[in-house]
Nucleic acid binder design. Structure first.
Lengths: 188, 188, 188, 188
DNA sequence: TATGAATGAGAGTTCATTCAT
DNA sequence: GATGAATGAACTCTCATTCAT
């Protein structure tokens, strides 16, 4: 059953998130996934491959979550609002995801080419949204990936801190933060 | 002699920077510090303790770099500009520093309390700058750590991507980014 | 169908020959035989049993090759010549065979009793040839297995070295070597 | 102490001889040498390196044993006799040696170049003896390595079988075998 | 104090064997 | 009979830590 593959992926992500990149051993993944150590190797060539798959599966999941309910017919700010809120909620309810992600990106596994390819595959519509905003003169004259970065990326670090308890968030603050994000990309 | 302690710390930092968090073995640290493996344990309880010390040294270094040339007599934007530029240049010339940082923060070594304590110790003047801006009504009505976060934190991810070649930066873009950071914290 | 047993044996033999004794895994045998891994265990108790069967098949093959064209009506030297040449050509064209053999004989699989039994079963005519030579006073007064050993066994090591390129052989040398073998068993 | 290195080498050789090449695990070597597993890696880079060292140490030992008491002033046959007897006695009292050796030579570790280099280093005087015999017209017109092979190599397989109990040896038989070896290399 | 040889637990990975289907 | 997913023990090798010197 693909069930096992899923369990292994989840276990790996969870372990990375909570014990750090080097705290994730294949033995522990097996234990947490309630699977024999050797079983992992039926689904993944080796540890590196497992980590890459965790990454890709996650990216795909995030991209779906991000775009849910975003309607290109809507006014630009409305689209932005949904995008930003989707991102926030996904990150808040998937704490493991970001903890694992920053570590993955800092690791030697991460390569520019592969990342570009993933962006292309999963986040094209997001970049297109920023591109359109730029072309209409609403957003700053920056490449769409930088606009996206400005608007959304800090959410990752932010929710990470929130999850760890370093930062307190409430609705008023979140509104303020969304407004800050929106203002950071608007053309002056 | 405290000389040895210093050499061990430097060796550890150097290794982390060049081989990554998991590329630093006690054996290698000993070798690079030209010290016997056992000697490390005279100065540091264990690996964890050594890593914590490296971390603290790093934070201190960063804080000094950040504040260099920031004069509280200057206009607020000027102070911000220097702060932001200092941060940018430090991060650009210490690319590996962040690679280790995300791993450190995600590792079990990291605790909220200790981090708060470090912030207090080393980054007080930075937070005070944002606090002053908030009190004068120039900045958004957000806690100073959040203001600091909005203004500066994304630089870490940004320079990391630049270093990896995922993003191209030039002076025009950097000006735009600084302006974006500034606008994101300004009260509307 | 016995067809499968055959395919498994062939696959095992082929793998040993090409990847060495330890290069033969049950998984690979299954794959090469186009059979499920579990199926092997319907035909062979375990890996050891499979290896023993491969060994016996090999011995039978060798014995047939050795005796081909040996006519007990012919003069003694002529019989020897054919025997020796058969041995040489078999070994030269089955280089891998010996590589596996020394490992088999050194492994715990190998037992004296079973080997004696195999000799009896497959190499009786060869021993009988040497026995006749001894009884007629032509050959040295040594047990027939030792005579056979003197005359033929070193061919195994010799061809092994030739295959590896440690030794150059040509027709003149081979004639000389056969003469040496013949002279080593002749009574003085 | 070098004592440990020695113990590891002996344990490795003993295990190869008795459990086969694949029966020798680093764990078992450690156990038999009464050493921790990690200790092996202080003396040998990896398993391959350990095996190569076993081989070279053994070759050196054999070469010393072979040449003991061989006096180039003596008559040729006398030199041969001592050489052959030395070889016999060494092999009979070092059963492990040959069991390991054939396996080593059949393994992928073994390379022609290295072997040639070893022969050069350790067995030069032996080859020179056969070379002299050939030049004086006493021995067959064969390369010295082949003469040596004819005269001595089969002793390895022979004593191996004796050790395993497949063959019974006594003084009369041994005299006969030495005579056979001598006759096999003499020019007709 | 300082050393570095020694330790042994644990890392990633393989593979003979089993068993529910 | 046949399958092949699953198992888990055992493999090679690393490394944080200790301790006799």
């Amino acid at each position: 059953m693909t069930n096992k593959r899923e369990r292994i992926l989840n276990a790996a992500e969870h372990l990375i998130a909570h014990k750090g990149f080097q705290g994730m051993s294949m033995q522990q993944v097996a234990k947490e996934a309630e699977v024999a150590a050797g079983t992992i190797y039926r689904y993944f060539k080796d540890k590196e491959s497992l980590l890459r798959c965790v990454h890709e599966e996650r990216l795909q999941e995030v991209s779906l979550a991000l775009l849910e309910g975003v309607d290109t017919q809507n006014p630009c700010f409305e689209q932005f609002r949904v995008l930003w809120q989707n991102c926030l909620h996904y990150l808040l309810s998937n704490a493991d995801c970001l903890l694992y992600r920053v570590q993955y990106e800092a690791s030697p596994l991460f390569t520019r080419e592969e990342e570009k390819c993933m962006d292309e595959r999963y986040f094209k519509p997001v970049f297109e949204f920023f591109e359109r905003g730029r072309e209409t003169g609403l957003f700053r004259d920056l490449p769409s990936d930088l606009l996206g970065f400005l608007a959304m990326e800090s959410l990752m670090l932010l929710t990470q801190r929130h999850t760890r308890g370093c930062i307190q968030l409430n609705d008023a603050i979140l509104d303020e933060l969304m407004d800050a994000a929106w203002n950071s990309i608007l053309k002056r």
